[in-house]
Computed example of a mutant assay.
Amino acid sequence: MATLNKIVAVIDDDESIARAIKRLLRSVAIKAESFSSGEEFLGTLSLTSGWPACVILDYELPGIDGLELQRRLAPTGVAV
């Protein structure tokens, strides 16, 4: 299992939706980072030492779609 950070990753190509979800999470004291694509998210993971505790994921993303990204994350134990 991957090392989990106390952060939520919001992956959505619609910037206004990602911003609204981040704002909602911040209102209940939850840290969140947003990503506009699955590739951007996976690229960031390779540069960091841990995985988010949870991922909020758009179903229709450019490139790697939400279902494929979920399949790739399943073995890590991250809640999607």
Rank of each mutant, 00 (worst) to 15 (best):
G50S: 13
D14N: 15
P62G: 07
Y59I: 00
S46N: 13
K6E: 15
L4Q: 14
E68L: 03
Y59P: 03
R23E: 12
S36F: 10
T48C: 00
V78D: 06
S16A: 15
E68A: 02
Y59K: 07
E39S: 01
S16F: 07
A2V: 15
P62F: 00
V8L: 10
A2P: 10
G66C: 02
E33S: 15
S37I: 07
D13M: 14
S34A: 12
D58C: 01
E68I: 06
L24T: 14
D13A: 14
L45R: 04
S46G: 05
C54M: 12
G50P: 02
Y59R: 11
S36Q: 06
S37H: 01
L73V: 01
L61Y: 00
N5G: 15
E68C: 08
G43N: 11
T44G: 06
E40A: 09
C54A: 09
R23V: 08
V10K: 09
G50M: 00
L73G: 05
G63L: 04
E33Q: 11
I30T: 12
L47Y: 03
D14P: 07
G50Y: 00
R26G: 08
E40D: 12
W51K: 02
L47S: 13
A29K: 12
V55P: 08
G77R: 04
G38Y: 10
N5F: 12
A18E: 09
I11N: 15
D13S: 08
S34T: 10
T76E: 02
D65Y: 06
Q70V: 10
E60M: 11
S36I: 01
D13V: 10
A9F: 03
T76C: 00
S36K: 04
K31G: 14
I30W: 03
A74H: 04
R19D: 14
A20V: 13
E40N: 01
L61I: 01
L24E: 09
D12E: 14
P62E: 05
G43K: 10
Q70A: 10
S36H: 10
L73C: 06
V78T: 02
A74V: 02
Q70L: 09
R23G: 12
V78N: 09
Y59L: 05
E15K: 14
D14K: 11
A74N: 07
G66Y: 02
G66V: 00
L47G: 11
R26I: 07
G50C: 05
K6A: 15
A79F: 03
M1L: 14
T44K: 13
R71Q: 13
C54R: 00
I30V: 11
P52T: 00
L73A: 06
S16L: 10
V8G: 06
A20G: 11
A20I: 13
E33V: 01
I64G: 06
S34F: 04
L57S: 09
V78H: 05
C54Y: 06
T3A: 15
I7P: 11
E40C: 04
S16V: 11
E15F: 14
